[in-house]
Simulated assay, not measured.
Amino acid sequence: MEKTSLHPLMFIVLVVVTTFLMGSSFTVGKIGLNYVSPLLLVGLRFTIAGLVMAVLVRKSGKPEKLADWGRIFTIGLMQTAGVMGCIFLSLRTITAGESSILTFTNPLMVVMMGTVFLGIRYRLLQWIGAFVGFIGVFITLGFHLQLTVGTLFGLGAAVFWSIGTILIKQWGSRFNVWVLTAYQMLFGGIALLLMGLTLESPKLMINPVSITVILWLAIMASIVQFAIWFYLINQGDPGKTSAFLFLAPFFGVLTGWVLLDEVVEWYVYAGGALIFIGIFLVNWTFKKGTANLEGDIEKMAKPLNS
């Protein structure tokens, strides 16, 4: 897609819309758990979204090699099955706001994984951001390291997301971005459906609320949200755009409070603020030409993609 000038006001509107869809999906998902078991709910969400997108991209170039389909399947297991499975399992025991905050610590974990597995050298400011962010995680958990099942799943979502990010940067240039998005969601959704039918006691109550939740998560919070986000990434600096991800957990907390009357302790706000500052420092490009998180990973990935 050719980049065109995007009006600052339109950029702000689109950022708010896409991050609202990201963040509010935690709350909508928690509502859905009243009618559908966690893995089955998220499996239905991404299987539907993946099928719709697969139809939309049917004329786009699809991989010819079996190994490339295997790569897409692996990304789907990490980015969709791993991330979303952990999120929806976490929502059984912690608030939508807490789950969204923990999940969106993934940029901090990418710094650690990028150093260990890809040998990326980050700037001091990025390490300060990671340190500040992880202090925020400690505070968000209540100033102690006693992890509940819900918090473990929330952190697990961030770990899977980080792995998915690195894999996409390693292999993503092999694929049309929309084909990759469609089929990784479809493969991940099918895996979640299978897990929902075998690893938990399946529950599915068909009523207007459950149908609305499933369709909202599949269409608005998946297809529309992905489309807007990829458009923004394509139109501007990916590092600067990614820094606005801090708005997603904000909307997760806000919608949880408005729709579910969730009470969020003060230390969750304090820890969340430090996490957002850490993510900002990790992602933001302060000077023209300064390396950013996505750019660093992409540079390391290029030799493996050629």
Score class of each variant (00 low, 15 high):
W229V: 07
F250S: 15
F175E: 04
L247I: 14
T241I: 09
G236S: 13
W161Q: 15
D237P: 04
I163K: 03
S242E: 15
G196T: 03
W229P: 02
D237C: 00
L197I: 08
W178D: 14
Q170C: 04
P208W: 05
L167G: 10
F251Y: 10
N207K: 00
M185A: 12
E200T: 01
I206H: 01
A218N: 07
L194R: 00
A221V: 04
F226V: 12
L254W: 01
F246D: 00
G196W: 11
I223L: 06
V209E: 12
A248I: 11
F251Q: 03
F251D: 06
D237V: 01
L186F: 02
A221Y: 02
P202G: 01
L186C: 03
K203Q: 14
L232R: 05
G239T: 07
L245G: 13
M205H: 07
L180A: 10
Y183A: 09
L180T: 09
F251S: 00
I163Q: 07
T165W: 11
S162P: 12
K240N: 13
F251E: 00
S162D: 13
N207Q: 01
K169Y: 07
A248H: 06
T241Q: 02
G189Q: 05
K240H: 10
V213R: 04
W178E: 14
Q170M: 09
Y231S: 09
I211G: 06
I168A: 06
I168T: 15
L193I: 06
F250I: 10
P249S: 02
K240C: 11
T212Q: 02
S173P: 05
A243R: 00
T212P: 07
Q225I: 06
I211P: 04
